[in-house]
Amino acid sequence: MTEAGVSAADVSVLSLDQLHKAFGALKVTDDVTLEVRSGEIHALIGPNGAGKSTLIAQICGEMRSDAGRVSFKGRDVTDLSAFKRARLGLGRSFQTTQLCFEFSVLEHVILSLDCMEGGSFNLVANPRNDAALREEAMHWIGKVGLTGRESRQVANLAHGERRQLELAVSLARKPHVLVLDEPMAGMGAEESARMVDLLGELKGEYPMLLVEHDMDAVFTLADRISVLVYGRVIFTGTVDEVRRNPEVRSAYLGDEAC
């Protein structure tokens, strides 16, 4: 299945070209080149401290790169700020949940829909009363399996539900790529399994860059995997290639993945 997926659609949606970032003498991102093709789930794995979070910050525009380019949908976005990249259709979830805790689930998804063009300066209209917006928001709430929870305050959601909401908030914007920073972090086995199913359903619809520690999830979902160690991509290949590669095994996977 993986081989077919790659050959069917190899148009690059998001590509990193020789990206660099250093804090003082410490090279956190060292000459990273990587691409996410349309329709694929591209997993990024690597031990703690490999520089995954920094790389995501560079991709999403929260952190400036020292050198190299980031292209998105064929456009050079290296110098665009985070909100402009988001408006172009770069969707993301965060390693530690970033949500507005005082909103209800429905309000939060409505916010997301209402910010497609960067938010409105309309001081009068209440978006909560917009039937079309509500309906569309409910669609995405249903898509991630939160139906029935729409009037619950975000602060009162369980951890796994917050993760689902993060996904709904991103999906509602119809992103052209999804950057998911450890979507399974902190989840129990059952919640994780549900999230894997959900991401599996979305596969093909949205290209994804998936950063994840859960190897079972990665091997289940990913088309291709890049291995990041000390800021360098030491290997990119299909699941099987990664499993077989001795360098990857010694550097990262150890025995557990065999």
């Binding site: 993301r92 970033q98 507005c100 209402d114 910010c115 209209a125 978006p127």
Partner: peptide, 30 residues
Amino acid sequence: LIVNSRFGLVFQALRQSERRAVNLGVNPLP
């Protein structure tokens, strides 16, 4: 009216999670 408006929703989102709002495409300053 402002607080409950489309503007107000974004303005309040910026307080609760600026990172989330920015990654939804919001430019905080205006």
